[in-house]
Nucleic acid binder design. Structure first.
Lengths: 235, 235
DNA sequence: AGAAAGTTGAACCGATGGGTTCATGTATTG
DNA sequence: CAATACATGAACCCATCGGTTCAACTTTCT
């Protein structure tokens, strides 16, 4: 089993403090390069053909790497898929959260802020990599339930929570009228992304930036008609 | 090619006017039965395991039929999938439209009508067969673009159109305030079904009727806050 | 330079699965 | 009853694919 020739299943964390230390150049340079290349190529291939249709040969070719190298770094096709997906969600979820960052402005009109944030959320939502990630996740949800859970938590759930936080602040400063920021966030996101399912034909059609802008504006419009603070009925 | 022994690729429409006529009992009785059984078993299997993972042997077993019988009725796995999906959307889309039927009442409070209709739409949306249909469609969208188009048109698009029609009538009778019933329909459906993606974990978790009721009520609430007719500013 | 680790390409194994063939069986029809 | 049409199950063919093995080669560390 634990022989020494080509059976050292690299695995392990990304932090490369191998045996020696001294020299500043990171120890597993060639290794980490290959691993990155493999994961990116894998995601590209999976995104193009789906999990079942992608064969490891092709992924190896796309990564410019030999097949045994893949099996050396990642044990089998399943973990290859898992790691590729996790890497992808790491790449993608950042952009979603960044889209909400500007909602931190302590003052200013709510409408233009929501419109800009909404547009950026939509843009990220329709980005090919993000779409591919959701597509793969949905397609293989049954086969990888744990992965589904993890990625949804790190993706959609984080977006939801961050938005709810922002809306709660708006409510507190009287710029929004709601007692349930979670519901408001859920509905704002629904108004944004819900219509895209049909409009993008489940992600198979790309949609113009203008259309994104239109949908975003309509969402904000309706959202504010429902959630803008109205005349207070307190005495 | 057109031999006679077991190579007669049945195919054809459902209307079974074969050679003979006279007798009232439909001619291809055994045949149509088998075909139905096959299509239903196929959809069940596909819904359980996905397209790639379902092998024809298993479908045959589930249908209580021999494998060559499947290839005799439907040419290959692809058309088997297509036909099974089309049959399923035929079964499902009816329920969705029926959910909107009660919005035809010419008078009565809009809110309870929308709540009831919304609940029924949601219920249908979360029905296992409907969910399986959307899941399979989404998963195999890249492989069957034409099927995607057809099913979306007969499913989601029809629901949207029907709802837009109902809302247009409401607007005309002054019970709703909008000049764009298509947008209103799009957003109402988004408010209904959008939140379910996260809540059902992409369809892998079943959600209680109470939760459905809650989401539906919230959707109607927000929708009406945005679309209820307000004080008219006409002279 | 020499050892150790890693990469490569090619061949190989075993399993799975789509699709076909065929001899046999059974129900319907004239 | 005989003919026709269809269903059956089992075997078969062939391609693909996940995963492994191995000998040769390159890189890195000491």
């Amino acid at each position: 089993m634990g022989s020494c020739i080509g059976a050292t299943r690299y695995d392990g964390g990304v932090n490369g403090a191998k045996t020696s230390n001294a020299s500043r150049r990171e120890a597993p340079r060639g290794r980490i390069d290959k691993r990155q290349a493999i994961l990116e190529a894998a995601f590209r291939t999976f995104a193009r053909e789906g999990y079942g249709q992608s064969c490891v040969r092709e992924i190896a070719a796309e990564a410019g790497v030999a097949k045994p190298t893949i099996y050396n770094h990642l044990g089998d096709k399943e973990t290859l898929f898992r790691e590729a997906m996790l890497a992808a969600v790491g790449r993608t979820s950042g952009a979603g959260l960044a889209a909400l960052e500007q909602l931190r402005e302590p003052d200013g009109d709510v409408r233009p802020m929501l419109e800009e944030a909404g547009h950026r959320v939509l843009k990220n939502h329709c980005d090919p990599e993000s779409q591919a990630l959701r597509w793969l996740l949905n397609a293989e949800a049954a086969r990888f339930p744990d992965l589904l859970e993890t990625i949804q938590r790190e993706g959609a759930q984080r977006l939801h929570d961050a938005l709810a936080d922002r809306l709660a602040r708006f409510a507190l400063s009287g710029r929004l009228h709601t007692s349930d920021p979670d519901l408001a966030a859920e509905q704002f996101l629904a108004l944004l992304t819900g219509p895209m399912e049909l409009r993008t034909r489940l992600g198979t059609r790309k949609v113009s930036d203008a259309e994104l802008r239109t949908v975003g504006r309509a969402a904000v419009d309706t959202f504010l008609r429902a959630y803008a603070p109205r005349a207070v009925d307190a005495p």
